[in-house]
Every structure is written in structure tokens, then in C-alpha cells.
Computed example of a mutant assay.
Amino acid sequence: MRTEANRRKINRLYILGAGASYALTQGQTESLVAPLDIQFCQRIKDLQQRTRPKWVAAAARRVEKEYLHHVDFQITGLEELIRQQISDYEFIAAIHPRRTRGKRTKEEYLNDLNHLAAYLLSRARARDQSLLEKWLEKYLKGTEKRATRNRIITFNYDTLIDNVLLNWHSPQHVYFDNIWSSSTKSPTRLADRYPLLLKLHGSINWRCSEEEYAKLFNSAVTTDESKTTTYNTKDCHYIDKMWINNRVCTPEEQETPLIIPPLPQKPITSIAIFRYLWTYAYEYLYEARNIVIAGYSLPPEPPRVSRRLQLLREWSHEQVKQVFT
């Protein structure tokens, strides 16, 4: 974390969990509602009946067919599904390797899940879009002459909030200053490098190449020098090119959503962009005068397991005047 002189003073900091997106969308057709963790697998199972796009039903069938655990697929939460699938796959590969020969890898399984999650969340719509816009206009719009001192930290992948903010601000101002506006349009560097929206687990509209994404989980980090001057990327996977694309890509394409699935051990500190985002999250917490926590309940597991809980436990209380939940 940087020195106090280099940190942004925050007036109001919103911390949003999955319940926030669910609340923004609930009360309408199920396909328009952002699913909670426990609802993901049932929604994926329902996708098997879709006729278009064809890849969705095919990927949904693969994910259920290749599920290794004995608990019914549709009643399993997404985080539990991934944790158990990886554990079971690694156990079988160790004691009975022939059973995994010729079968798809756990990385290929996660690739299907990532794309299906992106597809489901891309369909989510706010129940009252005008109300969402009024809230964001009041607290996050700002102007060049009077920049807002409010910020949002979110653990969600969806773009319900992003789509409104991107009508007013550049992607570099909303997310981070080295994200490209498209796969061909390079970013304009900003003097003010304090993102409005910190998406700590990535976003369904962020893209990187499939090759770069695979490295995040499968290869050792060889970087021995930091590639940036504003934060430390030493011993990190550094993704050279990240861009915005609101179209949902398929598992067969050469690009993939840049999201970190709910793995047992999320590699957030070994990936440069996520180390950057989590560092800023700590800074915002340290400097915030008012904190609003919405749609998030603290998990029952020990702090060492939950990075989200660790984040909330570690910040200084000296600047905080009020906390709303």
C-alpha cells in the first residue's frame, strides 16, 4: 500500500456483494435476475433446454455430465461446485490416473463455467433502471472540475453498474488506466489513477487472450522485476493486453472473460492487475469516511479462507465516521 500522501481521500465507499445485484434485478423474469451463488447450478441446468446460441446448451450439458461429486448438481452452489470438482479431479488423477486419460482437464471444465457465468450475468437487467441511474448520478457521476470522492468496491462480475458509469466516464476512469476500450483501441493514460469501480474478481466484459488466461493458473511466475512504476508487479503474472467487449464470447474463441472463479485459493496476489485492484481496495478502506456494505454477509469460514473477510478485517478505523449495512 502506498503512503498516505499518495492515497485518494474517500467520502463514501460502497462495498457490494452478490445480494446487491440480486436485489437490483429481482421481481422479474428469472432470466433477467442476477443469480446468487446457490442458484447458479440450477440456472446452468436450465440452459440445457436453450436452442440459441448453440454453444450454451452444449457447455451446460458438459458441465453437468462431467460433475464428479455425488451431491445433486442443481442444488450445489457455484463456489462449492468448483471447490469439490477440483478436489475430486485431483484425487482421482492421483490414485487412478487412467480414469482421467482422454477426458477434459479441470481447466477446460472451468473454462466452460466461466463462459456460462458470463452468459447468465450478461442477461441480467435492473428492475428499475431509472432508480439505479439516479443513485449513480448522485454519488458517482462527478465532473472534470468537481470529481467525485465516492467509490465502489464490488465482488460481482456483472455489469449492471458499469454500463451506467461507462455512459459518463472512460473505461480507464471506471476500471483502471491500462484497460483498452476494445481489442484494437489502446487506452488514453489518465492523470487521476483512482478507479471509480474496483471489481476485485474481474468482470464479464473484461477480456484477455485464452493463452494469457491459462498462464494465470498453469505456469510459474518468472517475472523478477516490476513492470509498472505505480504498484509492485514483481513475481506476478502480467497480462500485456486487457480490453472491453460486451459481447459474450464462446468457449471455442481465442479470448476469454477475465474473471477469477471462486477457486479454493484464488490467485489474486500473483496476477498483477488483481494485486493492483486489491491494493487500491485497502487504500480506499483506509481513507473512507463513510462505508456502506450492501448485499454481502460474512462467510462462516475462518479468515484465512476468505479474502473478502480478510479485506474487511484489516482496514484502519481511524478515518471512518459511519458504517451502514
Results as ranks from 00 to 15, higher is better:
L16P: 01
R275Y: 00
E30I: 09
A18D: 08
A294Y: 03
N163S: 13
L258G: 08
R308Y: 04
K141C: 03
P171R: 07
N205V: 12
K141E: 13
P35E: 12
C208Q: 07
N11P: 09
L311E: 02
T279N: 14
K241P: 05
Q265L: 11
P302E: 15
V305H: 10
T223V: 04
I291K: 03
L311Y: 01
P299Y: 08
T159D: 11
L113Q: 05
S122T: 08
Y282E: 10
N111E: 11
T229N: 12
V33N: 04
Y109L: 13
S316P: 00
T143I: 09
E301H: 02
L140Y: 00
V174G: 01
A59T: 14
T269I: 06
E144S: 14
S203T: 01
H317R: 13
S203P: 06
L198A: 00
E211C: 05
S183Y: 00
W278D: 01
R50V: 08
Y280Q: 10
T230H: 13
W243V: 01
F155Y: 13
P97K: 00
H173P: 05
C41S: 14
Q322Y: 02
T51W: 06
A59Y: 06
Q322E: 10
N246R: 14
I268H: 06
I95S: 05
Q84V: 10
N218E: 15
S209N: 12
A124P: 09
W206C: 09
H115V: 14
A60I: 05
W315Y: 12
E211K: 07
A281M: 06
E144H: 10
H96Y: 14
S122C: 14
P195S: 11
L258M: 09
R149S: 14
Q74I: 04
Y286V: 01
Y89L: 05
L298K: 14
S182M: 15
L13H: 03
R127E: 04
D235K: 13
A34K: 02
L190G: 03
A20L: 00
S219W: 08
Y14F: 13
R7H: 06
P251Y: 10
I260D: 00
L166R: 10
A5F: 06
P187I: 15
L277G: 00
K45V: 11
T105Q: 07
E301C: 11
E212D: 15
R307I: 13
L200E: 01
K106T: 12
G77R: 05
W243F: 11
W278V: 03
L196D: 02
L120Q: 12
Q26L: 08
E210Y: 01
E80M: 07
Y157T: 09
R127A: 07
H237R: 14
Q254H: 04
F40T: 04
N205M: 08
E283H: 07
E107V: 04
Q26S: 10
H115K: 14
S170D: 04
L13A: 09
T105M: 03
E211H: 05
I152G: 03
S130L: 09
E90F: 14
V33P: 01
Y67D: 13
I239L: 15
A94M: 13
N163H: 10
T250A: 13
T159N: 09
T228V: 11
P299I: 09
E107F: 15
R43Q: 11
S87W: 04
